[in-house]
Nucleic acid binder design. Sequence first.
DNA 1: CTGTTAGCGCATTCAT
DNA 2: ATGAATGCGCTAACAG
Lengths: 367, 367
Amino acid sequence: MSTPPATPRRATITDVAREAGTGKTSISRYLNGEMNVLSPELRARIEAAIARLDYQPNQMARGLKRGRNRLIGMLLADLTNPYSVEVLQGVEAACHALGLMPLICHAANEVEMERRYLQLLTTYRVEGVIVNALGVREETLRPVGGGGIPAVLVDRQVEGLVADMVGLDNRAAAELGARHLLEQGFEHIWFVVQPFERVSSRHLRVQAFDDALRAHGRARGHTLVLDLADPAEVERGLAELDRAIDAVSGARHDGRDGGSANSKRTADNAGEPARIALFAANAPVALCLALHLKTRYGAHWQTRVALLSIDDPDWAELAGITTIRQPTYEIGYRAVEFLHERIEGVQTRARDCLLPGELIVRASTSR
Amino acid sequence: MSTPPATPRRATITDVAREAGTGKTSISRYLNGEMNVLSPELRARIEAAIARLDYQPNQMARGLKRGRNRLIGMLLADLTNPYSVEVLQGVEAACHALGLMPLICHAANEVEMERRYLQLLTTYRVEGVIVNALGVREETLRPVGGGGIPAVLVDRQVEGLVADMVGLDNRAAAELGARHLLEQGFEHIWFVVQPFERVSSRHLRVQAFDDALRAHGRARGHTLVLDLADPAEVERGLAELDRAIDAVSGARHDGRDGGSANSKRTADNAGEPARIALFAANAPVALCLALHLKTRYGAHWQTRVALLSIDDPDWAELAGITTIRQPTYEIGYRAVEFLHERIEGVQTRARDCLLPGELIVRASTSR
DNA sequence: CTGTTAGCGCATTCAT
DNA sequence: ATGAATGCGCTAACAG
């Protein structure tokens, strides 16, 4: 009538040794694949014992002993962004290939969370970290060759941290988008981006956009900062945008519905009406814009304003929005490769891996 | 001229003890918050030493010793599905609250991966697992009270496994959707779902849909299975759907474009044309359908067929699609709570937590 | 209140 | 080719 232990204690290496009638050392050797030093006979006995006991080596213990546990941390600012999930796929594939186990930490856009998670990862003695965060400004991380643990950055640089980085070639991508818009004849182009002081990639995109428009000369470029985390700010920003749109396309907006079904898609006045183009710095921004435009101008909002976005979320195809797709999978994969090299002790100076984006033209930016 | 060690070995409890001029035990006590047994004086010295050495206890070692490491596994079939990410948010929040650390494993819809990950988790001695998978049929998991490690299921039951489960009230949800469609007057309704033999939630949805339509009597219900993993199968399924649509709405489809901009949204013939309604069992299916319909009928596909979906992805609002939103956050949160209780040794019999979905009516199903 | 001792499960000398 | 002993960093009796 005794209560059986809640968890029937898993077999340990000692159990296996006893079961196989040998010493722990041999078991350990077997586990580490040192087959050439084991008589086929012993090896067979060990195999049997392991199977019989359903033995599985304790990674924690192994890690403790040899000082490495094959764990790496993956710090993500926002899993809600499809970009993150896609990068993650690459990360997982690479980890799989390299025998690493990624600990995925989702900071949900909270800087405090990032700090906590980084500290937690450190506490679990991960061998390295892949960081895609917004507020990390930690000494925990290793400035190539310094203290801390090896880190590689994804998508964004971290101020004061010299480390490997992999991400989109932001300058080229923003330029690509701007050029496309210009070629399509848009003369009023707004670049819409989240606050970019702390996020290098956003900063680069803004800059490249500015440069591209300045170089072109004729068209007028503007930048709008939209803090998606702050509803009030979003509202203000969108209101500003609305004014700009009205100004450009001649304030034809006269009520709740800008003439959805009845206003044919053909030009209203001789020659195309001056359409305005919005260039979203990433998918979340694009979605926010699209939603707003739809409620303001109705289902046909795309006849009023063109939308182009960096990132290529699955709904872009459905909405017919032109995008610049990032090589997300490769980004994740390369990041792990970099990290792995660092973990293995590579000492070269910090590297930047900038991958090109691909323009996918859809209806939104066609005439 | 000696090369400093790549990783400057982190301080251990022994280092701290030496630095503080005391024994390891006191340090350990401090770490575990047994403050009442420490003289303020010693305590201060320890604090100082810890700060000076930037000491952080090694969780692996702690875990090894006390037999628990506060790690739980979270096995996800498909992170690409927004549902998963949302559930994850709840999981993370709960873990945070309960002092647990989730190891997130993404199986990318591959049964083999699920097996591997489960094995890996076991190897890291996680204290429990939250499972949302498609092929798990493992003895690894613990049938409540049995061997293995504690598990709680999310969204789907696992054949032959008696364990806690939390998810949507599928029967009620499918019924809710069906009823809404019927109330809107649709008489031809197709339920579209991924292969559901192995996924209990899908099965329940199909059943409830069937029942609802049977009960109603007048309208005709059909079920279409769409294996999103197999492009050829998808094509076949969509073709079948196309035929059905043509049959119902009178094969008005006469070419590449079903008269997008020119066919006003008003009725073509006296009285509403018989629109057909599609009921997607989840977001991925809904997206697939929407994309197809759009390429077949053009931007105005929604005048031809109504779409309703379980799951409420962010693009649903943009596309104006009626949905049934799942209480994803709560699902994740509850799952962790259940698991935590099991870990703490609760022995009650397996529980099911069925949460209600919420109907969000949008343009797609309005007249 | 505080320190000593003995493992947790495993890998690694070093013998044999 | 094999095994015994030692210790990774930490906690948990058990003394003082």
